[in-house]
Design a protein around this nucleic acid. Sequence first.
DNA 1: CGCGCAAAATTGGACTACCCACTAACCCAT
DNA 2: ATGGGTTAGTGGGTAGTCCAATTTTGCGCG
Lengths: 242, 242
Amino acid sequence: MTLDTSPLRPLGRTRLYEDLVERLGEFVVRTNLRVGERFPPERELASRLEVSRSSLRQALAVLENQGFIEVRHGGGVFLRRSRGFGGVLHKLVERRARLPEVLEARELLEVRLAELAATRRTDEDLASMRAALVAMEAEIASAGLGMDGDAAFHHAVHRAGDNKVLEHVIDGLAEAIHETRLESLSEPNRPRNSLVAHRRILDAIEAQQVAQAADAMRAHLRQVADVALLRWEPSVEDPPLP
Amino acid sequence: MTLDTSPLRPLGRTRLYEDLVERLGEFVVRTNLRVGERFPPERELASRLEVSRSSLRQALAVLENQGFIEVRHGGGVFLRRSRGFGGVLHKLVERRARLPEVLEARELLEVRLAELAATRRTDEDLASMRAALVAMEAEIASAGLGMDGDAAFHHAVHRAGDNKVLEHVIDGLAEAIHETRLESLSEPNRPRNSLVAHRRILDAIEAQQVAQAADAMRAHLRQVADVALLRWEPSVEDPPLP
DNA sequence: CGCGCAAAATTGGACTACCCACTAACCCAT
DNA sequence: ATGGGTTAGTGGGTAGTCCAATTTTGCGCG
């Protein structure tokens, strides 16, 4: 009996609570629910959406965690903000047309972190950065792309910058950045160039040259950005959206 | 009737799934779970943590949505990344000792957004900003703090900046910013000063004076920051953590 | 012995029913 | 009006059950 011609499900898997997040977003606009107003009770909402309360509560947990709703015990579920309800950073970022925005944000954050690192770096931070570059060099020597070392280096810089909030924010962009890094390092000769650029950043941070660190980081990122934009911009289409 | 402009008390609530998120983070380090490895089955995990499976699944939904874990139907729950597992921005931000970092991040983002707004603003954006200031003025005239107008103005600037990614990131700081805004505007005479500062920002954006917009925004934020830091820094303690 | 494949065990997905805790609305006595 | 207690409504959480996808087991055959 096995006609299993559908073994592939890399994407498009059904996670009910994820659908619910979107459907709740639709609910907000359909019922014209305003910020501050209350949703129907969970039980009613669940029955209207034709799901169980437990599934609904998974979706509500996500939305609450995301800051879109506020759930008051005994009080009800309230809309906090409606802007981009179903749209998390993930979704936002995976649209190629948005790449320039990602790169813009990354530059802003990383350059500042580099400046901070130049001011605040400890010897331990420097050791981490050096270790990352050593690892990167080893990867490249064995024909690798040095992506792990690359990531480790930037991570070390972030830690040296000593601002948990900025660090966390940039983590949010990590996935998208990872993609651009892959694109960039796949370019011929790019790994070695990248290594040199990283060394320049490290030197500036070590010498506590703030402006120089910022410039070095900016230059490095723009080099990456050029490649990424060149490769991606031609393929502009991205139909309206499902 | 009494205006319900302060119905929010984000402190003191206990949300089991939030605790679970943290406890799962502890579990990861305690059992030395590595990225890519599998968690115990939901049923076992639930019994070990002494919670119901439904509650656990709320936590898992949040963690999956956050990208920390991957849940495969029939396969198990796998660790995707461990860095900052239990540390969502919310938690990070609500520790007062971290206020300087929040303000630092906010300034970085808002100043850039102001620059971008000065370049990219449309007439529609300008209209939104003006409307926000009118609302703010009206609020203040009726002895209010003008917080809604304040928020609306910044929101309009963000939209004018036209970078969805930066916009989203700053939204993540929205809560913390909201708190600083409250602290600041409670200061005597602050609302009117704030209104003037906002007008200066608007003028610069309208005239498309990039540097001037940046300066005006920076000055405004530092005025807010001064108040917030003065009021909050004395109360430094924040015991280790549960 | 080893390979293939189907049955069985494992594990996540989802639902139902139930009870508890907190809120807010209401009503009544003052 | 005002204060306080009652009560219906609403979220918080649990246990049990069944379904669906995956992984493991083990048997039969070459």
